[in-house]
Design a binder for these strands. Structure first.
Lengths: 158, 158
DNA sequence: TGATAATTGTTCTACTATATAACAATTTGG
DNA sequence: CCAAATTGTTATATAGTAGAACAATTATCA
């Protein structure tokens, strides 16, 4: 009676864990890859205490000095309400400054400070190194271009 | 005196906004693509009130019934502390149930309820439709495979 | 022109996702 | 058997994001 019916086909075979049901999903793998890339980015910028949103903001201001807050925010997909604190942070660190343009006194024009210009040169270098690392992981510039092209197809054209 | 010095080289040429400095970054485009794909996923599952984490949890439980909470959580990259509320939600909706295995009374084994089994069949169909949509956007199954391969190269092998 | 609508920055609030610490119950390993 | 590790859980803190409301200003257009 205490026989545990000794497994007619003797196969303990500890069942494996199946992850394909999620890892085969484009969106799932996209997210995992994005999280990992961002974690590496954050690690590389840890000594500079710069988050991805900070870097992309500085980069856009550098490329478009005098832009309004809402222009930078919109380009980054950040709500203008949430963008206020981000700019406050960069301003209090002396990297960015707000100036009121005479032609539209509702808006704030954003500029890098001299210190901000110095710093973004450093940041751009860190970013370029990291980008090179990503390209290496992907298997070269051609693979990177292919990835960028495929990701672009997923993005809304507007 | 009210002459606006009529622009020697007559070119008002309203300056364009340069976004290349960020859109050319692998991580940035990866994130934008991921956000968009997730938004579409959420929209498709809106009537079912199911978030990506909910679906992937159900899918993993379906593929691995009786798994411990921590096994599912770890596979999804979710901290076990945060996984508790997620399972509570699925359990209160009658989709999942916790059972205490006799061999390890610390852990909770996760199973789909009969209702959960019914529902995930529906969810899997919605997901399959969405996946087909993504593949179409990418340009076909070959393009999808290429994307999955490239994303895989960015992921840590472990 | 003047009333109305729209824009911009801002504050406040709320919700989701995530990270850490601590704890009890239990199991594991010397 | 005792110490260490594991599991689920609670509590807490922090980012990121979304919406409403507001004042100041600018744009629209009848």
């Amino acid at each position: 009676m205490d026989e545990q019916h000794p497994a007619p086909r003797a196969k303990p075979a500890r069942r494996r864990f199946h992850t394909d049901v999620v890892t085969d999903i484009v969106g799932y793998r996209l997210r995992r890859a994005q999280i990992q890339v961002f974690q590496q980015f954050i690690a590389r910028f840890a000594t500079h205490d710069l988050r991805p949103a900070d870097y992309s903001t500085l980069a856009l201001i550098e490329a478009n000095p005098g832009s309004k807050q809402i222009e930078i925010a919109r380009a980054l997909g950040i709500k203008r309400a949430n963008f206020v604190a981000l700019i406050n942070g960069l301003e209090s660190r002396g990297l960015v400054e707000r100036r009121q343009p005479a032609n539209d006194r509702r808006s704030q024009a954003l500029y890098l400070t001299p210190h901000g210009i110095e710093q973004i040169a450093v940041f751009n270098k860190v970013q370029a190194d990291f980008e090179a690392h990503c390209i290496e992981r992907l298997g070269g510039p051609a693979a990177r271009d292919q990835l960028m092209e495929l990701l672009g197809r997923l993005l809304d054209e507007e």
